[in-house]
Design a protein around this nucleic acid. Structure first.
Lengths: 204, 204
DNA sequence: TCATACTTGACACTCGATGACACGTCGGGC
DNA sequence: GCCCGACGTGTCATCGAGTGTCAAGTATGA
């Protein structure tokens, strides 16, 4: 609603303030850690008041986690656009890869943000909470793809959960290695592990 | 350290206060929701001061989530005690079942707590954060079991993640059905989905 | 030029969380 | 008996996150 890069009216200056806030927050939080920096300081660094900060971000965690926002949307879109005959493991691998690539392909700043999130309990909690939402959304799309009832079948939620476990694991390894390890290889490796379950024929 | 049922000294009255606090908190939070009840009210209901509440629980979330504490420890123990030749899917199924059984086998109060956690963003976040810790612990045990290096192999983390996805899914379905669905059947169903991946022969 | 809507800052307030200090009780030693 | 230190608790003070309110300020349109 407010995140389109090509803003409509002069209120793309809203995006400008948001960017300034994000910039200031990421800079301050990267050094000093999450708890050592107050919202007042972030706001001051961006040249606005604390009250304005909370008009742009729902919480102090939000300014960091929202840096990864759009990933959920992107994954849902990607999964929905994969050709129907494609096996689930392939479709989900591309789905996850779209987010991983968006993360790992960018600046080195992204690496620091990921490290910050995975290393800060409060941020990790928020991140996982968001992942849980993504899981429900991906499960719904997947159920539609396969003509399964998400309310009764276990497969959609489990498959989405496995894919996000892969997502989480890749980010972990990538951040632990300081960006050394190849995200593509890690993604491939993770999906090699879960593929037998994702593509198992019906069964039961 | 302080959770042994058979307390040593007269300071098992500490456990008494803790129980009183937990009782009061769960009762108040079940009706009214998480945000509508203040720590002051919980403390007052237990007959202590707000300050004392925080001497027993690290946070307001803690008093609820700690209700499920011990599950991580229990799972780690269970996995460590499973016979070595057992296939991973079987060992992990018993591991998860030990926690599920501890949850679902108890009073109906447990169901309400699970519903409260899964339905409250702040509590869900804390719960997922704890699950992430369990995942690392289970991965370490699993790696030891299979003689794999957890720092390089992807399998342990992925397998632990899949098992916890099953755990989460079972709790979700169980709480959504108001305790109607059979936890044992759900656990079996979830592991039927992931077993092909858990037991896939080496590969590469 | 005036009226309107929107954004912002300043202030006050609630509540979660922590530190400092004072008080009471318990228990043991002289 | 008294004194003493350890421990748990309550009170008070404080910080920081988050929210509601109101009074500016600015842009837009008639």
């Amino acid at each position: 609603m407010t995140s389109r890069p090509a803003g409509t009216l002069a209120q793309r200056k809203r995006q400008l303030v948001a960017d300034e806030l994000t910039q200031a927050a990421l800079g301050l939080l990267a050094r000093g850690g999450f708890d050592a920096v107050t919202v007042d300081e972030i706001a001051a660094a961006a040249g606005v008041s604390k009250r304005t900060f909370f008009r742009y971000f729902a919480s102090k965690e939000d300014v960091v986690v929202q840096f990864l926002t759009g990933l959920g949307e992107a994954m849902r879109e990607e999964l929905a656009s994969r050709p129907a005959p494609e096996p689930p493991s392939t479709a989900l691998r591309h789905t996850v890869w779209r987010s991983i690539d968006a993360c790992a392909g960018q600046t080195e700043r992204t690496l620091r943000v990921v490290q910050l999130i995975l290393g800060t309990p409060a941020l990790l909690a928020r991140f996982l909470e968001r992942q849980a939402q993504w899981r429900e959304e991906l499960a719904a799309v997947l159920a539609g793809r396969l003509g399964l009832d998400p309310a009764t079948e276990l497969y959609p939620r489990m498959a989405a959960g496995m894919a996000l476990t892969a997502f989480h694991t890749v980010l972990q390894r990538w951040s632990e290695s300081d960006g050394t390890e190849d995200p593509a290889a890690l993604t491939g490796g993770c999906f090699a592990v879960i593929a037998p379950a994702l593509d198992a024929v019906a069964g039961e």
